[in-house]
Structure formats: structure tokens, C-alpha cells
Computed example of a mutant assay.
Amino acid sequence: MSPNRMRQKGEPNETTRRSGVLILFYPKGEDIYLPLILRPQYDGVHGGQMAFPGGRAELKDKGIQDTALREAQEEIGIKASDVKILGNLTELYINPSNLLCQPVLGYINYRPDFYPDEREVAAILEVPLSEFGKPETIQTRFVEARGFRFETPGFIVQEQIVWGATAMMVAELMEIIKGIE
């Protein structure tokens, strides 16, 4: 588990909802890529932020991996039935939205066509996995969220900052990759 996760305040409670996000790997050229989404600007907790596709669990979901697949299909238009589940990262409590989030790792053996849901996705960034391993990608920046301006570590990809829970997930993923190389 990334040390940054230890600084997260708050704990799940009786009103906490479960959620799942999909970290989808796919080949493109000579590299492995993953899609990140830019959430539209809105007054909610995660407006304008970079994220993995995903969302809250629904009663119709058979499990949290199904949640991640369903949400990714809804948000970015991938064909969920083509995704091979590889496993999960560490579940993460996201205090501002009171969600217990399960990052799910998946692989699809082709570059998918993306069809973003305009209500939930302002842009899709296709990011080479190798980009997160470059030291210059890891930076500290000032961000604004919920009327507060603060400094936070994150990953700079395609001129966007990936921070907060998404950055913690990426950091854990990169630790795992370093451990198997």
C-alpha cells in the first residue's frame, strides 16, 4: 500500500457506499495504454478532476468488479464482455464522497473505440503506462477543490494533474510493476 494512503482522513461508516473503477490496460503501438477520464466541471466533489472510469455500485451488479465494468462501459463505451479481469488493487476510502472504492485491473487485447458519455466525461486521455514511470511526471501542484486551494502530489499527464485517490491508485500500480520487473 502506498504511504500516501495512510494520510487519508476519515473512515467508512454506515452511510458509506461502495464503488468500483476500472484500470483498463490495452495495446497501442509498442506500449500498453490505459484510459483516464476528465470529469466535466460541476459543483460536485469530483468535478473537473482526472479519474479512472467507474462509479457507485448498483443492486443489479453481481459484485464490485461488475460495477467497474458496467460503469466503464457506460462512461467510455468499451465492450465490458471483452475485458479480462486481472485482479484488484487495495480498496480505498474516499472521504470527500464517502465512497469505499475498489480499483479493478482489466485487460483488453485491442485498442477499444471510445464513446464518452457527455454527461459524465469531458475528455478521455489515452496514457501510456510507461508515462507514469518517468520521474518528471511526478510533481507537486496547487489544485482547487470545493473552494479550497492546496498543494498536492500527483502525476502530470497531457497537461492534466492526476491527484487524490486516482493518483494513489496509480502510485500503488507503479509500486507493483516495479516489484515484478
Rank of each mutant, 00 (worst) to 15 (best):
G54I: 05
G10F: 02
T15C: 05
F132T: 08
M169C: 08
F150P: 11
W163E: 14
I85L: 15
P116D: 12
P135R: 10
E131F: 00
Y93M: 08
I176R: 12
L92A: 12
D61R: 02
L38T: 13
E30Y: 04
G10R: 04
Q41L: 11
G133Q: 10
E74Q: 13
T16C: 11
Q160V: 04
Q49D: 15
E172C: 09
Q49R: 11
E159Y: 06
N98G: 04
R5N: 04
P103I: 10
R18E: 01
A165K: 05
F114G: 07
A145C: 12
T152S: 04
A51G: 11
A72I: 04
R7Y: 03
G87Y: 00
Q8W: 05
Q158H: 12
L34I: 09
F142P: 06
T166E: 01
P128G: 08
M168R: 09
A51E: 15
D43C: 01
P128E: 14
Y115W: 09
T15R: 08
I32N: 08
I176C: 07
R149N: 13
G87S: 05
N13G: 15
I85C: 10
F148A: 14
Q73G: 10
G63R: 00
G133H: 06
F25I: 03
Y110D: 13
E58R: 09
T166M: 01
G55E: 07
G147Y: 07
Q102E: 09
N95R: 06
P153C: 09
V143C: 03
Y93P: 11
N88Y: 08
P128R: 02
E151S: 15
N95V: 02
E159V: 03
N88S: 14
P53M: 01
L125P: 01
D117H: 10
L99W: 06
N95W: 07
F142K: 13
Y110T: 11
P128Y: 05
N95M: 08
E11A: 04
R56L: 05
S97N: 12
I85Y: 08
G63W: 00
R119F: 02
P35E: 07
A165Q: 11
A80L: 00
P128V: 08
E91K: 06
E30T: 11
P128Q: 08
L92I: 14
A165Y: 07
G164A: 04
R111H: 12
F142W: 10
P35H: 01
M169E: 09
N98T: 01
L86E: 15
E74D: 15
I32D: 13
M169Q: 14
K60F: 02
E126K: 00
M174E: 15
V143M: 01
E175C: 06
L59I: 12
F132P: 10
S81D: 15
K178I: 02
L24F: 06
M174L: 12
E175I: 12
Q41W: 06
D66F: 02
Q102Y: 05
E75L: 11
P96G: 04
L38C: 07
D117C: 05
F155K: 06
M50T: 14
L125V: 10
L69W: 02
A122D: 15
A80N: 07
G154M: 03
Q158P: 11
V21Q: 06
N95Q: 14
G20F: 02
G154Y: 00
K9H: 12
I76F: 06
I156H: 00
V157M: 04
S97D: 15
Y26S: 13
L22I: 03
V170A: 00
K9W: 04
F52Q: 05
E14M: 07
L86A: 12
V121K: 00
P116N: 11
